[in-house]
């Protein structure tokens, strides 16, 4: 009997609030059971060599070819003055990072992983094993999403790093240029994270509502084409309607590039004319000779000499674009979770 009595005294000693806290803790643990395990599995699975090697190769090849061609036209940049080197390297790196490393390539790889979050498990018939475990369906989805997010962020870091290193090596510029490049690396990397997060949620939603991988790949391709090539067609073919009918609202590439430049300008990025010309051509962020030329001509200032610095074509504020993008993805996340919760899944 004496052995039993001490615990009773002890219980009386503990304040009620503490007791409640003690009771609540295990409940919380149980609720999030499985998130870590699913995260870990997805994260490690995505590091398969089948995925990493093509990704690294593709992220090198484009900068390699691009800068190799540029060295041909620009000559040996390494002997020029430092500011010029920095301008050239940073601007070109920024442009093809937006176009390729944090652009098409990133969309491709994010899309390929995200469209299979749920659908691959359903197609393989393994989803049932996850669903019959004491885990919420939303936890399964979020665990997978987080695994993908962290994995892609790490891969993207190395992809951008390799791209910058390749550029600096081929241009044969000094270390200082590389250091400045690393400074502008930060906004590009942040922008990449935004893209990774958004693509994951958009195509992850697709993986919930549709189990055919082909559809996911096609939608991904369509998005890529819309973003990187549709704008240029619109602006070339129907320049007069572009602003009057507010077509820029649908021009995903324009909006994305606005957000991108918004990130860059936060770090004091100064575009050179070639950069402006390229961005203007592909995404309409700057006025070009091809599109609406009035602004371009207005900005001609004899005192500036050859260098023409024009301002961004701001039909809308980049913050609005950013907010719309984020709200669409959050909406898709919530909708996806609701659909997943109600979905019938049979083997």
């Amino acid at each position: 009997m004496s052995e039993i009595s001490p615990p009773i005294e002890k219980i009386e000693f503990i304040p009620v609030e503490l007791l409640e806290k003690k009771k609540k803790k295990p409940k919380k643990e149980r609720r999030y059971n499985g998130l870590g395990i699913i995260f870990q599995k997805t994260f490690l699975e995505l590091f398969s060599l089948k995925r990493v090697i093509p990704y690294i190769l593709l992220s090198v090849i484009f900068p390699f070819i691009f800068s190799a061609i540029l060295t041909g036209t620009l000559g040996n940049i390494g002997v020029m003055n430092l500011d010029y080197q920095i301008d050239i390297v940073v601007n070109y790196f920024t442009f093809y990072a937006f176009f390729w490393n944090a652009g098409i390539l990133l969309w491709l790889f994010c899309g390929l992983s995200a469209t299979t979050f749920i659908s691959s498990e359903i197609n393989q018939g393994t989803m049932i094993f996850l669903l019959t475990k004491p885990i919420r369906r939303s936890t399964i989805y979020i665990g997978k999403y987080l695994g993908y997010l962290v994995n892609m962020i790490i891969m993207q870091f190395f992809s951008l790093l390799i791209a910058l290193t390749t550029t600096c090596t081929i241009f044969r510029v000094s270390r200082k240029v590389f250091a400045t490049g690393m400074y502008y690396f930060i906004p590009i990397f942040l922008f990449s994270i935004l893209i990774i997060a958004c693509v994951g949620l958009i195509l992850g939603f697709l993986s919930i509502i549709n189990k055919r991988v082909v559809v996911g790949v096609l939608v991904n391709m369509l998005l890529i084409i819309t973003i990187y090539f549709l704008g240029i067609i619109l602006r070339l073919a129907i320049p007069q309607f572009y602003t009057t009918y507010h077509l820029y609202l649908l021009d995903l590439g324009y909006n994305l590039s606005l957000i991108f430049l918004f990130f860059l300008s936060g770090f004091g990025f100064q575009p050179i004319p070639t950069f402006q010309k390229n961005m203007g051509l592909f995404f309409g962020t700057y006025p070009t000779m091809l599109g609406d030329t009035s602004k371009y001509l207005d900005s001609l200032d004899p005192e500036n000499g050859i260098t023409i610095i024009s301002s961004v074509n701001s039909y809308i504020s980049p913050i609005v674009s950013l907010i719309v993008l984020v709200s669409i993805t959050v909406f898709l996340l919530i909708l996806g979770l609701i659909i997943l919760e109600r979905k019938d899944i049979s083997p």
């Binding site: 149980r30 499985g34 395990i37 699913i38 599995k41 699975e45 393989q124 018939g125 393994t126 049932i128 094993f129 996850l130 019959t132 475990k133 004491p134 885990i135 083997p347």
Partner: peptide, 30 residues
């Protein structure tokens, strides 16, 4: 589901996971 163990008919498995690893994973999830 915490109180439940389910074995379905004609089960399918992950293509990259050995039987032992599969069991460990299932145990952890449970």
């Amino acid at each position: 589901n915490k109180l439940l163990g389910v074995a379905i008919a004609n089960p399918q498995f992950w293509k990259t996971m050995s039987a032992y690893k599969y069991l460990v994973y299932m145990g952890q999830l449970a």
